[in-house]
Write a protein that binds this DNA or RNA. Structure first.
Lengths: 143, 143
DNA sequence: CTAATTGCAAATAATTTGCACTCGT
DNA sequence: ACGAGTGCAAATTATTTGCAATTAG
């Protein structure tokens, strides 16, 4: 199970496993989309009304630091959404209407060719590709 | 000159050309990097101490709406930087250390192949590719 | 003239932080 | 017990908005 594996990693880093920390991870696992901090908060509040939003932020940031989660900022919005990054390199299909982001296990980027295009002045370490458009639901709804 | 061309476009949209609006455009033209709203503000304040930061924001947003400028959000930071988009489709080399962003006139994306990979459920309308790494200055400085 | 634009100050919105208290180990 | 973690409220940061006064066309 994913939860335990992540908790294991946290323990290795010397972090304590509190109920709210466990809840944050569990919540991320449950979401079928990439939630904002607020959405995680509301999700957890349902079963655990005493959590503070700041605790959610602190835990999300911790997970980002550890490398278990990455934060993506959607264009236009000033919110970040959080994604469990258990799997490796991939990109996202971001719906411009509802904000839903899905993973796309396909990377058209040729780092080698990119480095050539960028020239030797700039040392490439990574890239982020977000693909914008409309998801199935929104595509039909907007018609 | 670029300034006049942009002003022409604004006039077509029925916008008035105020000194501060002209100053915002001129400032964007002058910058050798992509500035934040605050940087544009400070630049303009030097010669025109009475402008309000809000006017800068309003004008930048106007220019974004008209399509003359696009706003990019840097990873990690919660600021947007603004770029004159006189030229067409291109991407950016973003320095993770100093935040400087340069244009890269190269696009490795094959929209066709991408659409195939995404499947027919999702209708692609565009994409954003940011390339991260270290610029020449920071590369040597960090060594 | 008159609608767009401005500057100011106050309002939001997202996120962070200081602090005393609590809880995991 | 001890320090990491929490909840609260206040602080910060980036940006937006209401409004009365100003100004471009």
């Amino acid at each position: 199970m994913q939860l335990e594996k992540i908790i294991q990693k946290l323990k290795e880093k010397g972090c304590k496993i509190t109920p709210q920390r466990r809840a944050v991870i569990q919540s991320l696992l449950n979401f079928s989309k990439f939630p904002t901090a607020l959405e995680v908060f509301n999700d957890i509040k349902a079963t655990n009304p005493d959590v503070g939003l700041d605790t959610i932020y602190r835990n999300l940031n911790l997970l980002v630091e550890i490398g278990i989660v990455n934060s993506i900022n959607l264009p236009g919005k000033d919110v970040k959404v959080f994604e469990l990054s258990i799997d490796g390199h991939h990109h996202h299909l971001v719906c411009l209407n509802c904000g839903q982001a899905d993973c796309l296990d396909y990377c058209p980027i040729d780092e080698q060719g990119l480095q050539t295009a960028a020239g030797s002045e700039f040392q490439i370490t990574g890239h982020s590709l977000e693909i914008y458009g409309y998801c199935h639901k929104c595509k039909s709804a907007l018609k």
